[in-house]
Lab assay of single mutants.
Amino acid sequence: MEQGTVKWFNAEKGFGFIERENGDDVFVHFSAIQGDGFKSLDEGQAVTFDVEEGQRGPQAANVQKA
């Protein structure tokens, strides 16, 4: 798993971006967030995640709040 920081996340649209430790950004969809209840992330929040190849390039999977 990688570690990163939430760059931004739009809860209304259900997606955002995580900044990886290497400085690259990776797309995150709310469906990739682990846990119960409303799935959202806060700007600046530390997270761990896997990276999978999506239809439009790399995207975060198995996102967990650190």
Rank of each mutant, 00 (worst) to 15 (best):
M1H: 13
M1T: 14
E2P: 05
E2C: 10
E2K: 10
E2M: 14
E2G: 08
Q3T: 14
G4V: 01
G4C: 02
G4K: 01
G4S: 02
G4Q: 01
G4H: 01
T5Y: 14
T5I: 13
V6T: 06
V6F: 03
K7F: 03
K7T: 04
W8A: 03
F9L: 03
F9D: 00
N10Q: 06
A11Q: 12
A11T: 13
A11R: 15
E12M: 14
E12H: 15
E12A: 15
E12L: 14
K13L: 10
K13C: 07
K13H: 10
K13G: 05
G14P: 00
G14C: 03
G14Y: 02
G14Q: 03
G14K: 04
F15M: 06
F15S: 03
G16S: 00
G16T: 01
F17V: 08
F17H: 03
E19V: 15
E19Y: 15
R20I: 07
R20K: 08
E21A: 14
E21W: 12
E21P: 14
E21G: 11
N22Y: 13
N22V: 13
G23I: 05
G23N: 11
D24Q: 14
D24I: 14
D25Q: 11
V26G: 00
V26Q: 02
V26F: 04
F27H: 02
F27W: 06
F27A: 02
V28T: 03
V28H: 01
V28Y: 04
V28S: 01
H29G: 03
H29E: 03
H29W: 05
F30Y: 13
F30H: 08
F30T: 04
F30V: 06
S31N: 07
A32P: 01
I33M: 05
I33S: 02
I33K: 01
I33F: 06
I33R: 01
Q34V: 14
Q34T: 11
G35N: 07
G35W: 11
G35C: 08
D36N: 12
D36W: 10
D36T: 14
D36G: 11
G37M: 06
G37L: 06
G37E: 07
F38G: 06
F38H: 09
K39S: 06
K39F: 06
K39P: 07
S40I: 10
S40Y: 14
S40E: 07
S40R: 11
L41Y: 03
L41V: 05
D42M: 14
E43H: 15
E43N: 14
E43K: 15
G44L: 05
G44S: 05
G44F: 06
Q45Y: 05
Q45E: 13
A46W: 11
A46C: 10
A46T: 12
A46V: 11
V47I: 06
V47T: 03
V47Q: 00
T48L: 11
T48N: 08
T48W: 14
F49S: 00
F49V: 01
F49M: 04
D50K: 12
V51K: 04
V51T: 07
V51D: 02
V51S: 04
V51A: 04
E52S: 09
E52N: 09
E52R: 10
E52I: 15
E52M: 13
E52D: 08
E53K: 11
G54Q: 07
G54F: 06
G54K: 08
Q55S: 13
Q55K: 15
R56V: 07
R56E: 06
G57W: 05
G57A: 05
G57K: 05
P58R: 12
P58E: 06
P58C: 07
Q59N: 05
Q59T: 08
A60V: 03
A60R: 00
A60T: 03
A60N: 00
A61P: 02
A61W: 09
A61R: 13
N62M: 07
N62V: 04
N62T: 05
N62I: 04
N62L: 05
V63L: 05
Q64D: 06
Q64M: 12
Q64H: 12
Q64L: 11
K65W: 08
K65C: 08
A66Q: 12
